[in-house]
Amino acid sequence: MLKNLIEIENVSFSYEEEGEPAVKNVSLSIPKGAFYAVLGQNGSGKSTLAKLMNGLYKPSSGTVKVYGMDTADDDKTWEIRQRAGMVFQNPDNQLVATVVKDDVAFGLENIGVPTEDMPARIEQALRDVGMQEFADRSPHHLSGGQKQRVAIAGALAMQSDIIIFDEATAMLDPRGRQEVFSVVQQLNRNRGLTVVWITHYMEEAALADRVFVMHRGEVVLEGTPSEVFSHADILKKCKLRQPPVTEIAENLREKGFDISSGVLTAEDMVREVKRLCASSWKK
């Protein structure tokens, strides 16, 4: 049984032969069922890393293996891309068809799924992202969040076990972001979908199992969200900030309040404050 679905070893990649590498000597592995986040500013190489994961780019050196298949092997390209789906940043630029149902079918048509198997798989995929009632609509009339959910359904219909989200929420409004993120979280929890979540939103990374922080093509920090976000200095160097709640919690701790480290979300904060109130009542 394979433990790590994606295995990246000492990978470097540069767009031009002599140019500065966009990804430098990165090694990481992604186990089955994980929800991993890759965090970084613009130009940190996080999107390049995403495209290395399904063979859209081939590493200049090092190896990328998906399900044990080397992405440099041209015979495996289509199998790798079927296993590792991808959702991109711009919701408009990744839907191909004029009808939602046809768009979900696009990947299935490409990998040669028999016509009679398609409707069931499309319907299931659309239901998994809560878009079943839009099956016959035109993507043009959907909101950004809905379009991204259709793109997710496209990958699910192909029975991808991994979906790589390349800043899939960057162009959405807060509601759309929430909508897409919670669908992905549910798929990860209930379906065991392996998720690679590339983002520059701290709040999203805080909810991942593990976070990788990239800066100038290198992974500079790695660990659970609370480990990573405790390194305020390194994050600052990468032009990233801790999530606002974490920052507030740390400031309070500096002022002498008894707040434990590792506050990442508003819920954590509420819990801590309640605990604090309860203990001061006792006094």
Partner: peptide, 11 residues
Amino acid sequence: DLAMAMEARCY
């Protein structure tokens, strides 16, 4: 972008 997305979907 679209060409990249189509390739990622095995076109």
